[in-house]
């Protein structure tokens, strides 16, 4: 397993400002950093140790991925995960709060299209005695064409003094919105592309993130979506 300590120095060396992960890896966030952008380019297992306040953006263009986050010390992880699937794809994310008062906020937005079958499992774990934690997760998946998807959201909270919330939604684009855009002459494929982009952009208003959504996910997606 590759081991990588991620700090601002490492990020500055990286000209694309995006960390590409192609093998099983352990990433260590030892101190606060600028937002970290992570592109998954293979099926893999990712372990993350988070000791500080970090904002993490993960882009997964349809690989099976298992991500386990260990929140320790001053660990505060805001994670924005964007997924695009056109075949069977598993994404498992587990957030383990291992130190008191650690914070996790997870936002997953995914699109399943074509023959996609996106299966998302999200676990938040707060063991007994790990008090004062915040453990939030919001998951939204959109299906279109023949695609399907599922979400298994789990919060395993064994401590009373914890703030924990979860929201999960699976749906399709609103029919009235699709019809409205069609009445303007937009082809159905173009509408899917526009609405998918709008949906993935909703995850975060960060401009760099949105630029990376275009580069990492939507270009691939645009080529593959067919009528």
């Amino acid at each position: 397993m590759n081991k990588l300590i991620v700090d601002n120095q490492l990020q500055q060396k990286n000209t694309t400002n995006m960390i590409t992960v192609a093998e099983d890896s352990l990433l260590i966030f030892a101190q606060p950093t600028d937002p970290i952008y992570l592109l998954i380019t293979n099926s893999l297992t990712l372990e993350i140790e988070c000791h500080a306040q970090v904002t993490l953006y993960i882009f997964n263009p349809s690989y099976d991925v298992s991500i386990k986050v260990h929140l320790q010390d001053q660990g505060h992880l805001d994670s924005y995960v964007s997924l695009v699937a056109n075949h069977l794809m598993h994404t498992d994310i587990t957030i383990c709060h291992e130190t008191k008062k650690t914070i996790s906020n997870l936002f997953c937005h995914g699109i399943s299209y074509g023959q996609g079958d996106l299966r998302l499992t999200v676990n938040g774990i707060v063991p007994k005695t790990i008090a004062g934690c915040t453990c939030n997760q919001t998951n939204q998946l959109i299906n279109f064409q023949d695609a399907k998807s599922s979400i298994e959201p789990n919060l395993w909270i064994e401590e009373y003094d914890v703030i924990a919330n979860h929201a999960a939604y699976i749906g399709s684009f609103l029919k009235e919105n699709v019809f409205y855009l069609q009445t303007k002459g937009l082809k159905i494929v173009t509408i899917y592309q526009l609405l998918s982009k709008a949906f993935l952009y909703q995850t975060s208003q960060n401009e760099q993130y949105q630029q990376r959504i275009d580069d990492a996910l939507l270009k691939i997606f645009a080529k593959e979506v067919k009528e």
Partner: peptide
């Protein structure tokens, strides 16, 4: 009543 399309 035209539709509202967030994000576009």
């Amino acid at each position: 009543d035209p539709a509202v399309i967030e994000g576009v």
